[in-house]
Simulated scan of single mutants.
Amino acid sequence: MTIRGIDVSSFQPEQYDTGGLAFVFVKRTEGMGYTNPRASAQVAHGRASGLVIGHYHYPRIHDGAAADADYFLGRLGADLRPGDILALDWEWNGQTGVSNAEADAFKDQWLARARQKAPGHRIVTYADRSNWLTVDQNSNVGDGLWIADYVTAGKPRIKAKWLFHQYSSNPVDQDVANFADQAALRAWANPAAKYQPFPGASWFTTGRRSPIVAAMHDRLVAVGCNHYQSSRNKDVIGPGDIASYEAWQRKFGYSGQAASWPPGPTTWAKLHVPNV
């Protein structure tokens, strides 16, 4: 099962279409001399739309990996938040004199530098199919591979395990992520989080099956809001979850429509559902 996203750069507007999307990767920097002037606004727009945020860097191989990584990270500022993903756009089009060995070593060194400077963040590597198959020698991609291959979404022509697949550039760069839903992506992106991030009100649909639902069930029972008939299929959203969560919201003084399903971010944060 996959979820949809896009990646944007200065060629896209600040207020891009987020309909049906779960994530966005925003180009931040290129080499040590370019910063996307729209990046902060594009990140803010994606965050306001409830998307998981990724930040990516296009390298200049001859700059050196540490210097390139430092330039990228130094320009994220307050835009970088827990749960954001970092990405190396491992390409070097038009850069003369770059050998395959040099490009491969750059990748490994850049990933190590980013890990050192930004601990706690997932770091992935974007590669087109050609570079992945002919230049990469050790399959080191950090926390995951973001593969570009313009074929059917979710079916890139590689054998390696991938997390993100860029399958089209029309009308924008379009991607899918190999996660069951946005909540699963959000939890993966923030492994240090003690509690499950709020997955968004639209996530709480009757019949949804997820370990997050089971964890919520257990917490509602633990805090004395047990309106369940049984604990069978406790990982599936049903009427017991709705009644139990509405009881939890009433505990905080909410009433009427304000206390009704679905959950909101304030009461969800206070429920302390463990990150599963």
Rank of each mutant, 00 (worst) to 15 (best):
I3W: 02
R4E: 07
D7K: 11
D7S: 10
D7E: 06
P13D: 13
D17F: 08
T18W: 03
T18M: 03
V24C: 14
V26D: 03
T29P: 12
G33F: 13
P37K: 14
P37N: 09
R38L: 15
R47W: 08
R47M: 06
S49N: 15
G50D: 04
V52P: 08
I53P: 02
H57G: 09
Y58H: 12
Y58D: 01
R60S: 07
D70L: 08
Y71Q: 05
G74A: 11
R75A: 01
L76A: 05
G77H: 10
D79Y: 00
D79M: 12
D79W: 01
I85K: 06
E91M: 11
V98L: 11
V98M: 12
A105L: 12
K107E: 00
R113I: 01
A114H: 05
G120E: 04
R122V: 06
R129Y: 10
L133A: 14
Q137R: 15
G144W: 13
A148K: 07
D149E: 10
R157Q: 14
R157F: 06
A160N: 12
L163G: 13
F164Q: 04
F164I: 13
N170C: 02
Q182H: 07
P191G: 09
A192D: 14
K194W: 02
Y195N: 15
P197E: 00
G200C: 04
F204A: 07
T206N: 10
G207Y: 06
R208Y: 01
R209M: 06
A215P: 07
A215G: 10
A222F: 10
H227V: 00
R232Q: 14
R232S: 15
G240W: 01
A243Y: 03
A243N: 13
S244N: 07
Y245P: 00
A247L: 08
Q249A: 14
R250W: 02
Q257M: 05
A258S: 12
A258Y: 12
P265S: 13
T266R: 13
T267Y: 02
A269L: 05
K270Q: 15
L271S: 05
L271P: 01
V276L: 04
